[in-house]
C-alpha cells in the first residue's frame, strides 16, 4: 500500500460500494414489504413439517458431531493461519522455515490420523457403522 495515502482514502471505493449494496438490499426488502400482499390463515402460522401438524419441541438434541466439528474447525482454522503466514514468506523463511513448517504440518497430519483412528471424524450413525463395518478406516 502506498504510505502517503491515508487508509481511509484508500478504502473509499470499498465504502461506497458497500453503501450501494446496502441500498440495493434495502430496496429489495423494502419493495417487497410495501408491494407484497397480506393474508391471514390459521395453518400459515404453524411451522412447516412436510404438511403434517408439528410435534414436539423445536429444541431437539442434535448429534454431538456438529459440536465436534465446530471445535475441529476452530482449532484447524487457527492452525491454517500459521500456514498462511508461512506461504507468503516461504522464500524468506528458506529451507529452515520449510523444515519447521513441515514439522508443523507433520504434527497436524499426525493429529488427523489420530482423530480419524479414534473415530472422531466418522459421521455415520451407530446403525450405519454396524451395517457397514468394512468401511471403517
Amino acid at each position: 500500500m502506498n504510505a502517503e495515502v491515508s487508509p481511509a482514502a484508500n478504502l473509499l471505493p470499498l465504502i461506497i460500494y458497500f453503501g450501494a449494496i446496502l441500498l440495493i438490499t434495502a430496496a429489495m426488502l423494502g419493495g417487497a414489504y410495501l408491494l407484497g400482499q397480506r393474508h391471514r390463515a390459521q395453518a400459515a402460522d404453524e411451522p412447516f413439517e412436510s404438511g403434517i401438524v408439528p410435534t414436539g419441541d423445536v429444541h431437539i438434541r442434535f448429534s454431538v458431531h456438529f459440536f465436534l466439528m465446530a471445535i475441529f474447525f476452530v482449532i484447524f482454522d487457527m492452525e491454517t493461519v500459521f500456514l498462511f503466514a508461512w506461504s507468503v514468506a516461504v522464500k524468506q523463511a528458506g529451507w529452515m522455515g520449510f523444515f519447521e513448517a513441515s514439522m508443523f504440518i507433520g504434527i497436524l497430519i499426525a493429529t488427523l490420523i489420530y482423530l480419524a483412528a479414534i473415530g472422531a471424524l466418522d459421521w455415520r450413525t451407530r446403525r450405519q457403522r454396524r451395517d457397514a463395518p468394512v468401511n471403517r478406516p
Binding site: G56, V58, F62, M69, A70, F73
Partner: peptide, 27 residues
C-alpha cells in the same frame, strides 16, 4: 423449525469444514 435448525447446523458444519480446506488449497 426442526428442519431449518438441522439444515442450518448441517450447513454450518459443512461450510466451516470446507473453509479450512479451501484456505489451505489456495496457499
Amino acid at each position: 423449525n426442526k428442519y431449518s435448525l438441522l439444515g442450518g447446523l448441517r450447513a454450518a458444519a459443512q461450510t466451516v469444514s470446507y473453509e479450512v480446506f479451501m484456505g489451505i488449497s489456495i496457499m
